[in-house]
Design a protein around this nucleic acid. Structure first.
Lengths: 173, 173
DNA sequence: GTCTATAATTTGATAGAC
DNA sequence: GTCTATCAAATTATAGAC
């Protein structure tokens, strides 16, 4: 936790790391509290319920992704950028939060279900609205996002970042 | 549970359904026991620990997949077959067990980590050894499996089976 | 805002009777 | 093989003092 960070942000940072590694049922208020250096009752002060926390976590993750992606000048640039977004995760063997939560969508609180689904839709829409996307993208936006998410999932499953590169070769023409 | 099924198989059936919906931390011995109609102590008789159960579950899932895939006569036939394997899951909004467990690989018992990784490697190898795979497959085997797994993951996340079809269009030339 | 204390429930796992 | 009974630990969440 950096000096100028609020406690809320520090809690979300800890939650993001743990949720990406272990999913919705894989982190607890006590663990987050210990990570941040407070007690679990204080975490509940900032986020009354676990679904509140996960929902806000997912929305923050979506905003951060859009900030990173920016406004691409071309379809090629957009493709490069979104590949980089997933490659960075693969290099650290960290799953995408959307996949980490969405994989158990059926077992999630409704609010979290919705925000996980919104993340993937946001990525597809962002690709779809890149300049000349319809003409210059090598595949439909849905296929590109699915390939990236699947390549990351399997590289995490195999604990082998190199798998990501082999699986995404078709995106480098 | 069908008449000729052993209790072991019935337990594994219940575990498969719950693990695919909610992941490794998303099912309990008590829930499986209730599904099958016995007590949790009896489940422990058949599977001493949870990692024993999940490991055997993952291995059975892999064997069933290989049985379904069979021995394809051509690369085209292999591609059709593996697409069908994932499409069936997508139509029921059921995640692949490998993805459901592997997504939290870092939090899994070592034995389960290994068997989840083995499943995805098995699919890639199966595609790789299809007749004339190197010449006739439209993409590298890693890319095909990643695209299928990612398309399924996002269709489950979005609770929209149609997403799977849009994302896998590049596999239907 | 953070704490102590605790409630109510669930979890994986074991002992021992039958 | 299945059961009852139980344990020790962990879970989400709340009440109320400071």
């Amino acid at each position: 936790m950096s000096q100028s960070e609020t406690i809320r942000d520090a809690i979300l940072d800890a939650a993001e790391a743990r949720a990406r590694a272990a999913g919705y049922n894989g982190f607890s208020f006590r663990e987050l509290a210990a990570d941040v250096g407070i007690k679990s009752a204080s975490v509940h002060y900032h986020f009354p319920t676990k679904s509140d926390l996960a929902h806000e976590l997912m929305e923050r993750y979506r905003t951060k992704a859009l900030d990173f992606l920016g406004e691409p000048a071309s379809a090629d640039a957009a493709l490069d950028r979104i590949v980089l977004l997933f490659r960075q995760a693969a290099l650290e063997s960290e799953m995408c939060l959307c996949g980490a939560l969405g994989v158990s969508s059926a077992a999630l609180p409704p609010l979290v279900q919705t925000s996980a689904a919104r993340f993937s839709r946001t990525l597809v829409d962002w690709l779809k609205h890149a300049p000349d996307a319809g003409r210059d993208l090598p595949f439909p936006p849905e296929a590109i996002v699915a390939l990236l998410e699947g390549a990351l999932l399997l590289s995490v499953t195999a604990r082998d970042p190199a798998f990501f590169e082999r699986a995404t070769l078709p995106l480098n023409p």
